Computed example of a mutant assay.
Amino acid sequence: MGNVYILWHTHTDENLDGGEDIKLIGVYSSELLAEEALQRKSKEKGFKDYLEGFEISRYILDQDAWSSGFVTK
């Protein structure tokens, strides 16, 4: 099985609807490529002020990433 690496950025702000702005930056075939994308984005307007918002997640292809249901209020 192969892996993909997803680069996310989350910005928390009470003024935003829901309090968060989550961006899917990209999907990469290696962790190195995801790290390189993070380095590029970390220099751009907005992102450079919220570096702690970056996250790289590894996902296995052809496998469920969520293994259970969910609960509502």
Score class of each variant (00 low, 15 high):
30 S>M: 01
47 F>E: 02
69 G>A: 07
6 I>Y: 12
68 S>E: 13
23 K>T: 10
40 R>S: 03
41 K>E: 10
1 M>H: 07
45 K>A: 04
13 D>E: 12
24 L>T: 04
33 L>K: 13
11 H>K: 10
19 G>F: 02
13 D>A: 11
38 L>C: 10
64 D>H: 09
22 I>P: 00
25 I>Q: 14
70 F>W: 14
43 K>Y: 06
57 S>W: 01
40 R>D: 10
2 G>I: 09
61 L>R: 11
26 G>E: 02
49 D>E: 15
62 D>A: 13
52 E>Y: 13
45 K>P: 01
50 Y>N: 13
22 I>D: 07
18 G>H: 05
58 R>S: 07
58 R>A: 07
49 D>V: 02
50 Y>V: 10
22 I>W: 01
40 R>G: 00
71 V>G: 12
8 W>Y: 15
33 L>Y: 09
1 M>S: 12
34 A>E: 03
44 E>N: 02
1 M>K: 06
43 K>R: 15
47 F>A: 02
2 G>S: 15
25 I>P: 09
71 V>Q: 15
7 L>V: 09
11 H>G: 04
30 S>I: 05
43 K>G: 09
26 G>I: 02
21 D>N: 05
45 K>Q: 05
6 I>K: 13
72 T>L: 15
4 V>E: 13
14 E>A: 13
17 D>T: 09
2 G>W: 09
31 E>P: 03
66 W>C: 01
49 D>F: 04
25 I>S: 07
23 K>I: 11
33 L>I: 10
30 S>W: 01
44 E>V: 04
16 L>P: 00
55 E>P: 04
41 K>S: 08
64 D>W: 06
36 E>D: 15
31 E>C: 07
57 S>P: 00
14 E>W: 01
